[in-house]
Every structure is written in structure tokens, then in C-alpha cells.
Write a protein that binds this DNA or RNA. Structure first.
Length: 115
DNA sequence: TTTCTTACA
DNA sequence: TGTAAGGA
């Protein structure tokens, strides 16, 4: 990739890593699903977390969910994630890096639970 | 060359 | 969602 190892990637790298078009990535940002950083020149810079988030969005999109549903799910997921105690999960990274793992099905259900 | 915004034969 | 235009 153009910026391997830095931890921040331009949109071209994100297209390759997520399989989403730059058009879609920018559109999702306008819809409030992601908030990438900007360089002084105005170019977007995505973190690994942003990319993981986009991959989850793509999976839900491919599963037939509309953007509205996806946005709600992610907001619920992340709001609940902040409220989870260390008793439920080993670490936040473990959850973020695992795209709906079967081994953590119970925790996943808890994260997606509507409050 | 890559990315950005705006706009739609 | 894709793509063209025009600038950075």
C-alpha cells in the first residue's frame, strides 16, 4: 500500500482494503457512519479502526441492510461497548478486531441488544 | 498521480 | 453509485 505501517491511510488504500469504492466511503462519511481525520491539505486519512468499521459496514450492506439500519446498529454496538465491564470481554480491541466471532456470540448479542 | 468537491447526457 | 469537470 502507499502508506504501509504508518497506521494512517489515504482513501485509495482504504478502497483496496475494504472493497468499497471511494464514492461509497465518502458517502458513508456524509451519512455520519465514519469520521476520518484530514491532512492540512484536506485529504482524508483513515486509521485501522476506521477500516475495521468500514469492513463491518460492508458486511452488513452485503447482508442486505440499508444504511439507516447499519448506522443504528453501529451506534448501539459502540454505545453498549463503552458500558461493558472487563468481566464481559478481555479487551475492547478483542471485540473490535473480531468481526462477529462465533466464540463470542453471547457477548455479541449483548452488544447488539437494544436498550 | 492521487484526492477533493460538485453535479448530472 | 458511477463518472466527468476543474482545482489542489
Amino acid at each position: 500500500m502507499a502508506s504501509e505501517g504508518k497506521g494512517l491511510y489515504p482513501i485509495g488504500d482504504v478502497e483496496k482494503k475494504t472493497g468499497l469504492s471511494a464514492r461509497q466511503i465518502r458517502y458513508y462519511e456524509s451519512m455520519g457512519l465514519i469520521s476520518p481525520a484530514r491532512t492540512s491539505g484536506g485529504q482524508r486519512r483513515y486509521t485501522d479502526g476506521d477500516i475495521l468499521r468500514l469492513i463491518r459496514i460492508k458486511q452488513m450492506k452485503d447482508s442486505g441492510f440499508d444504511l439507516k439500519s447499519i448506522k443504528e446498529k453501529i451506534q448501539i454496538f459502540e454505545r453498549n461497548l463503552q458500558e461493558l465491564s472487563v468481566d464481559d470481554i478481555s479487551s475492547e480491541r478483542a471485540v473490535l478486531s473480531s468481526l462477529f466471532p462465533v466464540s463470542n456470540r453471547a457477548v455479541l448479542m449483548k452488544l447488539l441488544e437494544k436498550k
